[in-house]
């Protein structure tokens, strides 16, 4: 493992992943109780990806996200009270109740928005990369997207554009093997999305998306490359979701053996047992305290969301344009 990382850094990784997991499992339960309207797509299982990538970023770097975006928000430093309130459709949410799960945005931490259209965030990240290049050299932009999005035109067009213009953009494919219920191996002949990078004249890297240290290390390389003017990288993280695609999806299309195999590789359990306790001999009480702190924070977020008011109907007409049109 990476000797450069200190115990506090490793514990920070654990804390972020654990926070995402608890947020997601809690939100999923609340969805089941109809406390949260609509649907949501949980990031549970994929925490190592957002965590490993975003720990290499600052608030001034940009990310564009997907319909499965809660993990990116938390890893980028968003406020879980405002996130939970948004899931509840409350006035105090990030989008004042107008966006919901698939549109959480926090410009203060460079989170340009989750996105309801598969693949649509990719060119937006390229545009943010263009801003970095022209206005803020040294900043970078990250496009998160899934295996499903890798077959959208925007994937190909955006990587081509970013490569041609040498923009500081890192394309992070979260390959969880299934686009809703469609097995990526049935709709793409080469299961390694990263292999496509060569076609655009950039580097493609595969990371173990269940291993936060591997993601961290490989993302660090790609991000530093971009910061130093080296241009884009395609980083594919092999990962797996714990739950189905969304509400009402028991994910029966995934073979039981495959699910069991991946669950054995759970990014949080393994990191805690093998690295934090096994290798680093960190006191289990320290870890337990972090877990309890997160659980309290999530409870507070749920209470904040529950107690917050719904927006007034009149607010439906606000924020369509910057100013009222005649």
């Amino acid at each position: 493992m990476d000797e450069d990382l200190t115990d506090p850094q490793l514990l920070q990784m654990f804390e972020i992943m654990y926070k995402i997991r608890q947020f997601e499992l809690t939100a999923y339960d609340l969805l089941g109780q109809n406390m949260i309207p609509g649907t949501l797509h949980t990031y549970a299982g994929e925490e190592a990806v957002a965590t490993g990538v975003c720990l290499n970023l600052t608030d001034e770097d940009y990310v564009s996200s997907t319909h499965r975006g809660h993990g990116h928000c938390i890893a980028k430093g968003a406020d879980i009270n405002k996130m939970m309130a948004e899931l509840f459709g409350k006035k105090t949410g990030y989008c004042k109740g107008k966006g919901g799960s698939m549109h959480i945005t926090d410009f203060k931490v460079g989170m340009l928005g989750a996105n309801g259209i598969v693949g649509a965030g990719i060119p937006i990240a390229v545009g943010a990369g263009l801003t970095c290049k022209l206005k803020y050299p040294g900043r970078v932009s990250v496009a998160f997207f899934g295996d499903g999005a890798s077959n959208q035109g925007t994937f190909h067009e955006s990587i081509n554009l970013a490569a041609a213009w040498n923009l500081p953009v890192i394309f992070v494919c979260e390959n969880n093997l299934y686009a809703m219920g469609t097995d990526i191996r049935k709709v793409t002949a080469n299961p390694n999305i990263a292999d496509r990078a060569i076609g655009y004249g950039i580097k493609g890297i595969i990371a173990d998306g269940m291993d936060v240290l591997d993601v961290y290390k490989k993302a660090k390389e790609a991000i530093e490359h971009a910061r130093n003017g080296g241009g884009p990288t395609l980083l594919e993280c092999k990962t797996y979701r714990i739950k189905g695609h969304s509400r009402y999806d028991p994910a029966l299309y995934r073979p039981k053996e495959e699910v069991e195999e991946w669950m054995k590789r759970d990014c949080i359990t393994n990191f805690k047992e093998k690295i934090l306790i096994g290798e680093k001999h960190i006191d289990q009480n320290v870890i337990h305290e972090i877990e309890q702190k997160i659980i309290r924070q999530i409870e507070q977020a749920v209470n904040f969301a529950k107690e917050s008011p719904f927006p007034e109907n009149s607010s439906a007409l606000e924020d369509v344009y910057a100013e009222d049109l005649k």
Binding site: L112, P123, S141, T154
Partner: peptide, 18 residues
């Protein structure tokens, strides 16, 4: 020749200060 993506690039650039 990638209209959806260069318009999208414009959208992302506009959101971030250009």
């Amino acid at each position: 020749i990638s209209e959806n993506s260069f318009v999208g690039c414009g959208v992302g650039a506009a959101m971030t200060g250009l």
